[in-house]
Computed example of a mutant assay.
Amino acid sequence: MTEEVVKEILPGTWRYVGLRMKDWHPWNVPIAVRSAKVLERHFNGNCYQLGKIQTHNVIVVEIDPIRLVYVRPKFRRYRSAALRTFPPAKWPIVIDHVLGRAIAHSWEYEYVLLQRLSNRKVNSEHAPREKVLGPLPTYPDLCFWDRRVGNKPLNRDPTYWGDEPADYDPNIESDAGMTLQQHGRWGWALGTEDTFEPHRQLTPVTFI
């Protein structure tokens, strides 16, 4: 009989962050929301004001281990808000709207999710796919990740799956899964680290 080998997953690795994100996935972390009330209802409360920034510009969702930053698509100081919320990074980062803010604004979504990226080149390669899109038959209250949008935090170019990706459609669900390491990279892009440190500039708010 051979002994079962259990590989220890240590802090400081993508897999460790992936374990911490076990309850959060592309299908329950929205990338754009219709209103603050919709956001609060989806996360069962847990919404916060960041410092003195008005909540029509920024709302932070905090549920250990996540601390998500949602901003009004046309809010210009989004990078400053993100850097005040995300833990300090050990390397240069880009702050990015997960759903192109021009798309979110044209579809009248009040908030769009921010992420941090470590690859400027990949971010630029995705930019042509973030132009304003035409109207849709229906607009859900919550938008979630599709395969192309999910490529960016994993440092993949937009054609990773082989063909030129279709335009983003919030009514089509993604079937792209992630390994534990990829889950960790995705979680890091949203601000998750090895530990969850208190944030002293957050004040609970309610909209319902």
Rank of each mutant, 00 (worst) to 15 (best):
V71Q: 02
I66N: 11
V69D: 00
A82N: 05
I93M: 07
H126W: 04
P88R: 02
A127K: 14
P92R: 10
K121M: 08
N57Y: 13
K121N: 15
G100K: 01
P128L: 09
V112I: 09
I103P: 12
R72M: 05
E62Y: 09
E62N: 06
V61D: 00
V112A: 05
P92N: 13
V94A: 14
Y109W: 05
E110D: 15
R120E: 04
V58H: 02
E62V: 05
H56N: 11
P92C: 10
G100F: 00
L114I: 09
H97I: 10
P73M: 01
A82P: 04
E62P: 07
A127I: 14
R101D: 03
Y109C: 11
E110V: 00
V61R: 00
L68A: 04
P73W: 00
T85M: 01
V122T: 09
I95A: 04
P128T: 13
R84W: 04
G100N: 03
V94E: 06
V112P: 02
A104E: 02
P65K: 01
Y78G: 01
H97N: 08
A104H: 02
A81L: 01
R79L: 03
R129G: 15
F75K: 06
L99D: 06
P92H: 11
I63D: 12
R129Q: 09
A82D: 08
H126P: 09
R76P: 07
E108I: 10
R120F: 07
A89S: 14
H126Y: 04
A104I: 02
E62H: 08
F75D: 13
R101G: 01
